[in-house]
Amino acid sequence: MSILEKNLVESLRMALASAGIEVDEPMFDVPYRGGKLDCLLHISSPYGRRRLAVELLRQAYPRDIRDAAWQLQSFLKDNDEAKDIIPVVAAEHISEGAKDDLRHHKLAYFEACGTFYLRHKEWLIDIQRPSRPNARRSEVPLFTGAREQVILALLVERHNFRSGLELAKLSETSTYTVSTVLSELERKEWIESEGSGRTLRRRLSQPTELLDAWAEAWTQRKDIKTKWYCFMSNPANMLEQFFEKLDNSLMGRDDGVFTGAAAANRITPHLTRTDTVELVIPPGKAGLYEFSLKLKPVDKGANVTLIERTGASFLFADKKTSSQPRLANPFILYLDLLDGKGRNKELAHQLRLNELGI
Rank of each mutant, 00 (worst) to 15 (best):
L40N: 01
S45P: 08
A60Q: 11
R58V: 03
P62H: 06
G48V: 08
D67G: 00
E55H: 13
E55M: 08
R50Y: 11
R66K: 11
D67C: 00
R58G: 12
S45D: 11
V54E: 04
R58N: 14
D64M: 03
D38K: 03
A60G: 09
D67S: 03
D38L: 06
E55S: 12
A60Y: 09
H42F: 10
L56V: 04
K36C: 04
D67N: 04
R66G: 00
L57G: 05
P46F: 08
P46V: 12
D38R: 03
G48F: 05
L41I: 05
L57N: 15
D38Y: 07
E55Y: 12
L37N: 00
R66V: 05
I43S: 06
V54H: 07
A60S: 15
L56Y: 12
L56P: 01
E55W: 07
L40E: 04
L40K: 03
S44N: 14
L57M: 12
S45N: 11
R51A: 10
S44L: 13
D67E: 08
R49S: 15
L37R: 00
L52R: 08
L40M: 07
L52N: 06
L37P: 04
S44C: 06
L52Y: 02
R49I: 12
Y47L: 14
D67P: 00
L37G: 05
C39Y: 02
G48A: 08
Q59P: 03
L56K: 10
D38P: 00
Q59F: 11
K36Y: 13
Y61C: 01
P46Q: 12
D38Q: 09
R63L: 04
D38W: 12
A53F: 02
L37W: 11
Y47G: 10
L41W: 00
S44V: 07
Y61L: 01
K36N: 10
L52P: 10
H42Y: 07
S44R: 13
S44K: 15
I43V: 14
D64F: 00
V54N: 04
C39I: 01
L52G: 09
D67F: 03
S45W: 14
R49D: 15
L40Q: 01
R51I: 02
R63D: 12
L56D: 06
E55N: 09
R50H: 14
P62Q: 02
R50N: 11
P62E: 01
R50P: 03
C39N: 01
I65V: 15
L56G: 09
E55A: 13
Y47S: 14
H42I: 03
E55G: 07
P62G: 04
I43W: 01
C39M: 05
Y47C: 12
R50S: 10
V54K: 08
L41A: 00
A53Q: 01
R50Q: 13
H42E: 12
I65E: 00
G48R: 14
I65C: 13
D64R: 04
A53W: 01
C39F: 02
Q59W: 11
L40R: 04
Y47Q: 15
D67Q: 11
A53V: 06
L40T: 04
R63N: 09
P46R: 15
A53R: 02
V54L: 07
R49L: 14
L41M: 05
L57F: 11
E55V: 10
R49N: 15
V54A: 05
D64E: 12
R63K: 11
C39E: 07
